[in-house]
């Protein structure tokens, strides 16, 4: 029977990141506040996907499907924002 220790450690790390993200919101980082918050969210999501959703031990086909899902999201965000961010009023 495998140990639950990795799950406990990941949960601990997620709570540390939660404390960091709330504290960071009260510090004035100028334009960096939102990018920092998103970076922390991305780290939390990666921990959940890799450890809790067992993608770390999944076969390559699952890896491709997971990456493709987020790749499509990337296309949607990049193409749409390249329009909105470069519009002249």
């Amino acid at each position: 029977m495998n140990s639950i220790k990795p799950y406990v450690m990941v949960t601990g790390a997620l709570f540390v990141l939660l404390v960091i993200t709330v504290s960071a919101a009260y510090v004035n980082l100028g334009a960096l506040n939102t990018p920092v918050a998103m970076l922390i969210s991305l780290s939390k999501a990666s921990l959940i996907v890799l450890f809790f959703m067992h993608v770390r031990h999944s076969n390559p086909l699952i890896h491709i499907f997971v990456l493709v899902g987020f790749f499509w999201l990337g296309i949607m965000l990049t193409l749409s924002l390249s329009d909105f961010l470069t519009r002249h009023p």
Binding site: T21, V22, A25, Y26, V27, N28, N33, T34, A37, M38, I40, S41, K44, A45, I48, V49, F52, M53
Partner: peptide, 21 residues
């Protein structure tokens, strides 16, 4: 876990918008 991940992104975007100022 997926529903948890959605919240992980919603939380800072809704509650933590430049709280320092």
């Amino acid at each position: 876990h997926f529903v948890d991940i959605v919240w992980v992104f919603l939380f800072p975007l809704i509650y933590l918008v430049d709280r320092h100022s």
